[in-house]
Design a protein around this nucleic acid. Structure first.
Lengths: 333, 333
DNA sequence: ATTTTATGTGTAACCGGTTACTCATTCGAG
DNA sequence: CTCGAATGAGTAACCGGTTACACATAAAAT
């Protein structure tokens, strides 16, 4: 391995001078700089980040914790984060938590042990001690916490829109999937929907779910139609759940959207290609990741961040799992 | 930050002793060990991996390079890798290459600078100098190279099966998407298909593609039906391409599978829910990732690895984009 | 009883960088 | 012409671990 000493020797200077050239700090004579750069070139030297990190007590690494990249929603978040980080020279240590507290603990510890300068987490446990204790910046992504900055979508509004659209398109006996109780954005969606449902006086049932796992969604979908067979509209907690519901509805021979309308949440790739293509409330996942990275970078650089909570807009994406809206549609904006 | 010195002081021993306890090396008296462990507990100490890594010149980090996790095939590989690595205490530094040589170069350099002990890469440039020069183990994933171990699926066989199945189900004017020329598994699939096509004397056309990007696949799909409008069967280079073809076929009002049969490759999640659900050649992506990690761990541990190339089996997954096979089907297994 | 050998622990060098400090020289202002 | 400031570069301490080496004592072997 080529070290700074080799470079120094090769260039006939001290290691301090090489370091100065590398970091563009202090005074270095133009001629000296050129000699050092030549030596670096010739030896094909790249500084050891580990040694750097040890002395400076910080690295160029960011910890990224997601529940499960196998769920197509998360890779988009991840790409957004990565692309922004890459622009500023940061790299990611990555981990899937599987919604397990222990795994999360382990990963957070790894991040810290490796001198990560920040952690972006889509955690299920934002209030846990191991987050509170962290001395490096933390940004929650697609999650909300009172004690840390966060980037998330406007779930409340999303829930409202979902309810309005599904009611406006004629559903009158609606099932709402609640989503995990301890995940704020999921609860916001739920509450937004319920809010509108109650205001308009439309009948609805609530199906509770404990996780975002596909397996559970499938069970709940079965349960839904078993308990409430005359359901004519479903507001799902996310797209994966909506897919499960759609699947079950079709399996039972129900026509979608004629007999049952379904609205998802997220707008993950490919759902526009399902049959019927799934209507959903879109979250700008890539942008959320990007914004979270941006916020993190500002925190790392010690800038005082005015906006600690960034709420992103959502929008209804009309596709085939909802019916066409009846004529009287005089929109003016 | 709590350091080993703090622990040493707290326990009334030297740092060497603490280190011995931590690493279970050398002689440590039972009583001393307990005292040190108590101190570690009380101070909530975890060793700094960076310092360790600097001295040992190796970390617990593995570099993972994938083209784009936004393509649903890759998260599965990634999960397989991660789950196996996690079992042995390794962590991942992760990067998307976007099929760009420069990005790949940069990430590889980062991995090295951070003392990664190994690199698992789904690279488009397996023969490049920056791979050759690496002194740490490299395992190619879903790629093939003569100078490094690799884990991949049997593309040749996959191509053969695809051709057999689509011919056996009645297609007679077949279009084959070739996939990127420099990616071996893609070429193997192509050759396998062509092999069968030629042997059986069925007419076929070749559509070349330069990348796996969805955008390009969409263009090629248009081109395909524009140039060869009477195509009645398409063997796609992967599922994303197959989706693009499916989409274009439906847009043109062609019935799938009645007028055009389509076979993909990979078996990514959700394609079973498309309409029609996509028939495909399945690669065991998760297992491939897992196996690659396994191989990497053996290499890291310096075990002589007999099997440097691991070829995984593929299988035809029959769904709705291919027709039912004609009656004479007396399967006996 | 004496010599090995095993056990237990501390001191200090080392990993590859960064930077505080020191010293020498040059430059510009008065 | 003198002196303080600016410029340029080297020495060595430091980051937080690991381990070679030294040393002391206890146990086993002769």
């Amino acid at each position: 391995m080529v070290t700074i000493k080799d470079v120094a020797k090769h260039a006939g200077v001290s290691v301090a001078t090489v370091s100065r050239v590398l970091n563009e700090t202090g005074y270095v004579h133009e001629d000296t700089r050129r000699m050092v750069e030549k030596a670096i070139q010739e030896l094909n030297y790249t500084p050891n980040e580990v040694a750097r990190s040890l002395y400076k007590r910080k690295s160029k690494l960011i910890g990224l914790l997601l529940p499960d990249i196998t769920n197509p929603y998360f890779p988009q978040l991840a790409r957004g984060v990565e692309d922004r980080m890459q622009e500023s020279g940061f790299r990611l240590i990555f981990g899937n938590s599987d919604e397990s507290e222990q795994k999360e603990r382990d990963y957070i510890q790894t991040f810290v042990q490796n001198n990560a300068v920040g952690i972006i987490a889509s955690t299920n446990f934002p209030g846990m001690d191991f987050y509170r204790r962290l001395k490096i910046p933390v940004v929650f992504l697609d999650r909300i916490s009172s004690d840390r900055p966060a980037v998330y979508a406007d779930g409340r509004e999303g829930g409202r829109i979902a309810a309005q659209e599904i009611i406006g398109r004629g559903s009158r006996r609606i099932a709402v999937l609640q989503g995990p109780a301890h995940i704020r954005p999921a609860q916001d969606r739920f509450q937004g929907a319920v809010e509108v449902l109650q205001d308009t006086g439309v009948a609805y049932e609530v199906i509770r779910t404990a996780s975002f796992a596909l397996k559970e969604a499938e069970e709940k979908a079965k349960e839904l139609f078993a308990s409430f067979p005359d359901t004519d509209g479903v507001i799902a907690s996310n797209d994966m759940a909506a897919i499960a519901v759609l699947h079950e509805a079709l399996r039972l021979g129900k026509k979608v959207p004629e007999e049952v309308q379904i609205i998802g949440f997220d707008d993950i790739p490919l759902i526009g290609l399902l049959s019927p293509p799934l209507s959903t409330i879109r979250q700008p996942a890539y942008d959320m990741g990007y914004k979270a990275a941006e916020l993190m970078i500002r925190l790392i650089e010690g800038q005082t961040v005015e906006l600690r909570n960034i709420q992103m807009p959502v929008e209804f994406v009309e596709r085939g799992s909802t019916r066409k809206k009846p004529e009287n549609e005089y929109v003016d904006r």
